[in-house]
């Protein structure tokens, strides 16, 4: 999986592409770890081909981290990834902009 990072003022966008699975989840955790708690974090999933529960866990962790002082938005969710989010009942829980 590749993670692209774009910063615009207080907003940080992480663009994920490839497979977010048990192997690559720690990379996302590290990337989110570098982002401050007060910023607006945007997760761009357009290039994501695959998502497993280990990846989902990191997304929920990111949401929890940003919920206090910042904001967390998921954008451009591909169909296959959306399917996994729906399957696990997380689609409605995340702040998703399509």
């Amino acid at each position: 999986m590749e993670i692209g990072k774009t910063t615009d003022g207080n907003a940080v966008m992480l663009s994920l592409s490839g497979w977010l699975d048990a192997l690559s989840a720690p990379a996302l955790a590290a990337a989110v770890g570098e982002v401050g708690e007060t910023c607006d974090l945007v997760l761009d999933l357009e290039g994501l081909e695959y998502l497993s529960s280990m990846g989902l866990r990191e997304i929920v962790r990111a949401q929890r981290k940003m919920s206090q002082k910042g904001s967390f938005t998921v954008v451009r969710v591909p169909q296959t990834v959306a399917d996994v989010l729906r399957m696990t009942g997380l689609y409605g829980r995340l702040n998703i902009l399509s």
Binding site: R57, V60, R64, T88, L90
Partner: peptide, 18 residues
């Protein structure tokens, strides 16, 4: 609880659904 998913536990849900 939504945030408890941060500790994992979605795997079985996925397996059961597929």
């Amino acid at each position: 609880d939504f945030y408890s998913y941060a500790e994992g536990g979605m795997g079985m849900t996925i397996i059961r659904r597929i």
